[in-house]
Nucleic acid binder design. Structure first.
Lengths: 196, 196
DNA sequence: TTGCTTACTTATCAATAAGTAAGTACTTTT
DNA sequence: AAAAGTACTTACTTATTGATAAGTAAGCAA
């Protein structure tokens, strides 16, 4: 709807990934957009609503991708997922799950359940992709796809958190190791150039 | 040294794991210990020093464990590591790395490098254990032990973060999946009762 | 006994947080 | 043309933050 509203959400998204939810303020956003503090309160009366909007936008982006690429095989969809995280890694950014889950206890109920939805949605998407990739023989792994998906998400999440601290090459080392465990026929170096 | 100082560190540790570093305040600590705000400033003039002390204590605990159990085989040491994380999981707590790394950008240099030291130390300890366990035939995995250690730490870290949100059984599902990948001869259900 | 340190308290600070009330300018609807 | 809604600004309030200054009581040391 409103362009300002979208700008606020996008900026809040960046700030959350950089500093966390509790460490960024309305003033941080207002300063960059050159509007007053209260203008943000007009669009998001309380901070929790802004947080929910940021998470919801991420959910929409993800569902939008799934809808547009429903025809692609699981293996290819997973490449896009890893590619997205890789781009984050290069920007020194973490994912929303990695940024928000540690502060979970400080959120109100509505924001908690929105975050819950995001975590479940990503995991289920990955699980569907893994299941399909295993059925088609493009990947090989033991155990339930949903548990394996948790491990995949886990690796992506923490490789972003840790590579920001221990060095940016850690992301690829970790993800490549994981891809080997999945019996994937590709590695991070095969990814450059894939578009969303 | 001072008992109060130790109490402050211990309480700050809990608060950081529950809410994150930026979301807890000197007042939170003071209220529980029934002392005044300024008493904490006496022991830790600035908040960063308290944060560093919390991380340093964790480092000391870890090094203390390694020193005391240097004789144990890698496989057994890793069981203890997983057991420690499992106990955290049951308490609904996350580990210091999981709690602090997302807020990395908001810390001053000293606290950043202290956190860095902790991350590296845990990873190197796990790598040494894995290397030894592979050499002795108790575990089987491909690739460099240091990269594999990153994956192990990653799984433990994010299983705590995610199980707090998606359900406590997720921890065991993820860790058991990972242990299978390592060719370990044990699972989380074999752990109850191991002491530090 | 004097001096110094330890471990605080009381009282207060400036800065910053989220949030609100009231007003203004522009646009759309009736 | 009047009314109503949209998108703000100005100008606050209230609460909390980390931090500091000044004082104090207890204990130890020469």
């Amino acid at each position: 709807m409103s362009a300002t509203r979208e700008h606020i959400i996008s900026l809040a998204d960046n700030l959350i990934r950089q500093k966390g939810f509790n460490a960024f303020s309305y003033s941080d956003v207002a300063a960059v957009l050159n509007i007053r503090n209260a203008a943000i309160h007009y669009h998001f009366p309380v901070k929790s609503l802004l947080g929910q909007a940021v998470i919801y936008e991420e959910l929409l982006r993800m569902e939008g991708y799934r809808y547009r690429n429903a025809g692609l095989c699981g293996d290819l969809q997973l490449r896009h997922l890893v590619e997205t995280f890789y781009q984050n890694s290069q920007r020194g950014a973490v994912c929303l799950m990695g940024a928000l889950t540690p502060e979970f206890a400080t959120f109100d109920e509505d924001m908690q359940s929105m975050l819950q939805k995001l975590c479940v949605a990503i995991r289920e998407w990955a699980a569907d992709c893994l299941e399909e990739a295993r059925a088609s023989g493009q990947m090989q792994f033991a155990g339930e796809a949903l548990d394996r998906a948790a491990l995949l998400v886990s690796t992506l999440l923490s490789s972003l958190l840790l590579s920001r601290i221990e060095g940016q090459d850690l992301f690829r080392r970790m993800v490549d190791q994981m891809l080997e465990d999945l019996g994937a026929g590709w590695r991070t170096e095969d990814l450059q150039g894939i578009k969303n």
